[in-house]
Design a protein around this nucleic acid. Sequence first.
DNA 1: TATGAATGAGCCTTCATTCAT
DNA 2: TATGAATGAAGGCTCATTCAT
Lengths: 196, 196, 196, 196
Amino acid sequence: MTNKDRPKYQQIIQAALEVIAENGYHASQVSKIAKKANVADGTIYLYFKNKEDILISVFRERMGQFIHKIKNAIEDKETASEKLLTLIQMHYAQLTESPYLAKVTQLELRQSKPELRREINKVLKSYLDVIDSIIEHGIKEKEIRDDIHPRLMRQMIFGTIDETVTTWVMKNERYNLLDQVEDVHSLLLNGLTKKN
Amino acid sequence: MTNKDRPKYQQIIQAALEVIAENGYHASQVSKIAKKANVADGTIYLYFKNKEDILISVFRERMGQFIHKIKNAIEDKETASEKLLTLIQMHYAQLTESPYLAKVTQLELRQSKPELRREINKVLKSYLDVIDSIIEHGIKEKEIRDDIHPRLMRQMIFGTIDETVTTWVMKNERYNLLDQVEDVHSLLLNGLTKKN
Amino acid sequence: MTNKDRPKYQQIIQAALEVIAENGYHASQVSKIAKKANVADGTIYLYFKNKEDILISVFRERMGQFIHKIKNAIEDKETASEKLLTLIQMHYAQLTESPYLAKVTQLELRQSKPELRREINKVLKSYLDVIDSIIEHGIKEKEIRDDIHPRLMRQMIFGTIDETVTTWVMKNERYNLLDQVEDVHSLLLNGLTKKN
Amino acid sequence: MTNKDRPKYQQIIQAALEVIAENGYHASQVSKIAKKANVADGTIYLYFKNKEDILISVFRERMGQFIHKIKNAIEDKETASEKLLTLIQMHYAQLTESPYLAKVTQLELRQSKPELRREINKVLKSYLDVIDSIIEHGIKEKEIRDDIHPRLMRQMIFGTIDETVTTWVMKNERYNLLDQVEDVHSLLLNGLTKKN
DNA sequence: TATGAATGAGCCTTCATTCAT
DNA sequence: TATGAATGAAGGCTCATTCAT
């Protein structure tokens, strides 16, 4: 049984997620996480190398599941358009379900030290890969234009989704993110211009 | 003569910008800023309330100019499409010209404490207002579709531009951001879909 | 069967000796000793009251044997001069044979807490007694001068031997300690002065 | 004005010496030293790199003076015998005058980490050099025997003096160390043997 | 006996801010 | 205005010891 399967590991991960969401990254002392996880301060260090390792693990574990679910949901879909719709829908749905994760990913983890950022970006990379594969598929099937560098397309997709979630989190999640799925999908596919 | 007009005020602002860009947010001690600005530590506190106030001022001053220049450039343009093209072009141009500002806005200041983020967002708000006014103008002139909430459009525009810049900064600015202006503009206006 | 006769007791003592010699006193955690002794951390506490008790026991056991052997070897000798020669020879020989013991007694255990030092000194006392008995014998037989307090003589003998060993250990035992036996013996008996 | 000339530097050195002498090396927290020196904890770090640096400095400063005074006193003396007598006398006199220094050098500083030991040995080296120069002088003048390696002679001299002081400190300085000067001098010069 | 996961007290160091000059 | 020496609160981490199994 590895560390990750032990109940205390997940207990600490969850506690860390909540503490960061509630207090912000900078006010998240190890002792606070330990208390919320109902373990002694020292116990933390049986499961994690140091404070940074806790935070990286929170992100890796949670975003890992997050991305995994999206990947699964997309597989079935035929067209790039459907795949993108599903991605947006799943992205919004999961963050709606887990406000802690939303708060932490959109706000708190952006306040982290360079080394931590680097680790976060590794995880993020695998999400961007998912988006890239949708674009590639769309281009191959001639659904998506091929006159623009795919990297820019991915940046538009991720940038847009990310910005809509950030706004929603900063507005304290007062509206329903899922109501925007179709409109965001339409915007990304068709752009701003009025067609007639 | 207010504080802002005194030479030391600008001296400290500039020093802070450079120190953050060079050392990162977390390694930007007041003493380092003071040294770079050639003033004593204590002198900082004659011009700024506290450390946070320095950072907010950096952002306010620099982003103020940044936004002001974009506003000016856009005024002349007739169509929403032209205005948007100019905004993208100016956004990229200014950050290309000032690598310090790019590094600080895209990476370092996102690592700041919640209170600081809030102040930064106030400044950012006036940039988002500029984007909103372009959209509003476009809708009125029937250039821009009116079936989608303008807020979502603005989020796509800002999210996309922001994400392209972040990628560029994280790639150590190894390519020319300005080469992407037309493509980003086309993507935002026309979306991903292949037209025929 | 007392603790001392159980195999694990000696196992832990030997492990402690090696761990201290290899890692130094300050890096000798109980867990490290347990691992080297192939027992669980908790097992240590079935045989020893606490960490200090391990260290004292190491010293007591090893120095006990050390002193015992010297005592035995001296018994046979007739004169104080011969006894002293044998003591020096045995002292050097045993530490040459056991580099762990040398490193630990000369360097590492001197870095211990006052309480531990006190215990160590109790053991040392019995070694000093051996030296005292040689001196006493020599005085009685008129081999050794009686115009100087025997305590000072013992301090010269022990101080000199101890200092020569410390130097040797700090020079990483690069020369043969036993080569010095006769010279040290001559120095202690005859002093520094040139006779003619 | 360098750090060393500022009053607080000496204030902290003296406080550290007293704290170590009173509490032992291991119970000498930085905060305790700061309190005794009447400065804030942080102030310590304006004058010393870290805790170890305080301890090294204590030793360097105090032993520096110690050795300097002995060197001066020896210069005048003609013969090796007189020089040695003066060295013993000065060694005992200075430690008698400064019980703190005695306690720290004989007991506490031997309980230090390897890096600290190394620094201490550097200082000690210059004391051993003084002893070596006496021996060399004595050999040249045919006062001291030349059939024994001078290093062994030095080890006897230092080992003996050191051991006599250690015993005295451990006996809580209950007798007068200076009473032993002539006897120790006689022992070192003439050895243990009864002459007739 | 034996285990080893869990405990939690303890401490060095940083750095934003102050204030006497 | 300007200085910079001094302040002191705050927190991550280690490791000897315990105890449920």
